[in-house]
């Protein structure tokens, strides 16, 4: 007999992630089951949330479950077919006429170069993507690479890295999300300092920049700090979900919370304000001779 689950609206906000972590918890013990997810109540699905959703479904499949998505509302089915998410679940992809999707894709941790090509192809070289200033585009692209590198270096995932993006033209918003099924930030912090922190505080710690979970000869600890600095200037948003922790930076304000259930890894989402005209001018010039 099938395990029947249901999904409501999924937006890229705390409530949307809460819905997904609850789904994860309900299927946590499923093994060799038929999992049917009734999506009749999912009247909206922010396409970028496919990274987190896809990661969860992949994990269900890894536990030898068969996943079926049922009663997907037409609009949602269209969106999730355009970004190729539903191709993994038997649907045919449909052309993205308006070019607003950055397709859903799964990567192995060794695929950093492949990921870079995907970003160039699907984001940088596409005429549909909004005209951002060259410097903003460069910062955005580098931010995405930082997120991916962060997952490669810290997550210890064996099940891959999942990414997806969406452009919302009316809101001047470009959202990109990367999810992994690794140890999670709280688990990583615990390994490093030996103490258990509240998950949302562990995330805050990781973003702080004065701390790295890296050990050994290659230093670290900068990636998430760089991202938060950029997002503050851009007046966009930066959301991290890891284990039970929720951390959000939006319009300069941080918000933390704790979920009832855990995401089995980490999701990092950035929302870029594409209308940003900030010049990202540097406060002072640095000479190459001053770097070391």
């Amino acid at each position: 007999m099938a395990v029947k689950l249901a999904l409501q609206q999924i937006r890229h906000c705390r409530a949307g992630f809460a819905e997904l972590v609850d789904l994860a918890a309900q299927a946590e013990r499923c093994f060799l089951e038929q999992i049917e997810i009734d999506m009749a109540g999912a009247s909206w699905f922010d396409a970028d949330m496919c990274a987190a959703f896809g990661a969860l479904l992949y994990r269900f499949g890894h536990n030898l479950n068969t996943v079926r998505l049922l009663n997907i509302p037409n609009l949602v089915e269209q969106i999730l077919s355009k970004n190729a998410f539903l191709s993994s679940y038997g649907r045919k992809p449909i052309p993205d006429t308006w070019g607003t999707t950055i397709p859903y894709q799964r990567f192995e941790t060794k695929d950093e170069r492949y990921f870079a090509s995907y970003i160039e192809r699907e984001l940088v070289q596409r005429p549909e993507i909004p005209a951002m200033s060259p410097r903003l585009l460069k910062k955005f692209r580098e931010s995405i690479f930082e997120i991916f590198s962060n997952a490669v270096i810290h997550s210890e995932t064996e099940l891959g890295i999942f990414s997806c993006g969406q452009f919302y033209p009316k809101k001047n918003l470009l959202v990109f999300s990367v999810a992994d099924l690794g140890i999670g930030i709280p688990g990583n912090v615990k390994k490093k300092i030996g103490s258990q922190l509240l998950p949302e505080r562990a995330i805050a710690c990781a973003v702080d920049g004065r701390f790295t979970t890296k050990s050994g000869p290659i230093p670290g600890g900068l990636g998430l700090k760089l991202l938060s600095d950029f997002i503050r200037l851009n007046k966009g948003a930066f959301v991290i979900v890891s284990d039970k922790g929720y951390w959000e930076l939006r319009r300069g304000q941080t918000l933390t919370d704790k979920f009832r259930n855990a995401f089995p890894g980490t999701v990092v989402t950035i929302e870029i304000n594409t209308a940003d005209t900030h010049s990202y001018a540097l406060r002072s010039e640095i000479s190459p001779s001053e770097v070391f």
Binding site: P186, V189, K192, I193, S195, Q196, L197, L198, P199, R201, A204, C205, D208, R210, F211, T212, S215, P219, G221
Partner: peptide
């Protein structure tokens, strides 16, 4: 900073957040 004192980062975490014993 990291190579001067690799433990600095752990200390910084403790200093900023304290242990929660969650």
């Amino acid at each position: 900073a990291y190579f001067k004192d690799p433990e600095r980062f752990s200390d910084a975490a403790r200093e900023v957040l304290g242990d929660d014993d969650a």
